[in-house]
Design a protein around this nucleic acid. Structure first.
Lengths: 238, 238
DNA sequence: TCTGTGCAAATTGTATGCAATCTGAAGGTG
DNA sequence: CACCTTCAGATTGCATACAATTTGCACAGA
């Protein structure tokens, strides 16, 4: 809770919903791991950080709760979500349903301009991969997710885009918790390959590759349920 | 706003979130058209109706806003959503992506008990179809949506279930606004056919039929954009 | 009569105060 | 020494008060 950039704390004064801005800042902090799963987000503390009342802070936390990035327990408070392996599987199962369709839609709507932006994005992603240090790792996870979100944006369906916003954000949490290699290294080249197929208009293969890509991301996770049933196991065997 | 059942206004006192209960009641009222699209939902009024403060009422309205059932304009208030034809198309496009996958998952997980429940549900649906009057029409729309929600529940993916909750609710709004025949009459028999295929374990055909079913529902709508660009058109041609 | 300005009522946005609930620790008891 | 009880501190749940904004109407002027 101490690592939030100061810059993002200076919110546009009255222009728009302040709770929305706070949500965005917290959201970013969560998905690139500056706020670890389990971290408590107290209303008072969040309010103080952004210089707003608990009312506004509370609204921001409510939004994050709806997105599944935060879990609130009645009379106990809000905590950064700590997805179980089962939740992780459901997240990726959902992505397997939605993302091939998004790729298909993107093939029909993508413009040369879009493709340029994608290439820039992928170059940036590559840069982070080659850098060292935790900051670069965070940026890499973020950039990797952004590729999927850009695709959703190009697909032109606002509802699916919102679903993907949620799924990608929660995926970041899952990768942070269960990832073996931090970020699967094959992911980046697959992004390139998917973009190529989209550019060539090969919707079928692009969608197929996306499916494999999601499989690869999930395969890089260690989803043995060490958590969740931990208590039950401990009681049974100990 | 005067047609809410009194029974649902008597909420379990402290057991659970009161705002959640209010949300559910309003949600039901919206999806079966007791609250028409465009209806203003003022915080004070909602609060008075359920005998809570504006704080709680506001939280309920926020939840509905996240679900897309309510649109809030800053400093103006909350209104029951009035989906545009474009939004309607996106809703059904999303369902086309998700629901075949749900059917596939359901085939693998459905139990004989589940099937019994589905048959009961379909019988009830049929009863409403044969009844006359607006109350029966509302119940019919609700029951039709419930079939899809039960399927999502059986599929066992909480995230997809939540997405479907939202999509089905918004679909009800769309059907209310743009439906030609109220509810497409072929829908019910298709529900039966889908359930049969699922029972027989024919995932492929069941998923295919679901796809057609969604197409049929959408085909029964009149999505010429009489609304939405009306202003722009008026300015351009008039 | 039509148009533009200004005010007043109503509604939302936000802060804050009080009550209810939970947590953790201290202290007493077997 | 372990365990249970009790209580204080802290945090959330909710209500209410005040500020900011919008809207519609009244009224003056052309």
């Amino acid at each position: 809770m101490t690592l939030l950039e100061k810059t993002s704390a200076s919110l546009d004064p009255v222009t728009e919903d302040r709770s929305m801005a706070i949500r965005d800042t917290l959201r970013n902090a969560i998905i690139d791991r500056r706020l670890a799963p389990g971290t408590k987000l107290s209303e008072t503390e969040v309010g103080a950080l952004f210089d707003v009342s608990r009312t506004v802070a509370r609204a921001a936390l409510q939004m994050l709760t709806f997105e599944g990035l935060v879990k609130t327990e009645r009379n106990r408070g809000a905590f950064v979500s700590h997805p179980t392996p089962e939740e992780a599987r459901q997240i990726f199962a959902s992505r397997r349903l939605i993302e091939p369709g998004i790729v298909t839609a993107a093939v029909e709507r993508i413009t040369p301009d879009d493709i340029d932006r994608f290439r820039e994005q992928l170059v940036e992603e590559e840069r982070y991969i080659n850098e060292r240090g935790p900051a670069a790792r965070r940026a890499e996870i973020k950039a990797s997710g952004d590729f999927h979100l850009m695709l959703a944006s190009v697909a032109g369906n606002a509802i699916l885009q919102r679903f993907m916003d949620e799924l990608v954000a929660r995926s970041s949490l899952v990768i942070a918790l269960y990832g073996r290699s931090g970020v699967s290294s094959c992911g980046h080249s697959e992004h390139f390959a998917i973009l190529d197929l989209i550019e060539r208009g090969d919707a079928k293969r692009a969608a197929d590759l996306m499916l494999h890509h999601i499989d690869h991301i999930e395969a890089d996770l260690d989803l043995q349920l060490k958590q969740g049933v931990a208590l039950k196991d401990a009681l049974a065997t100990g």
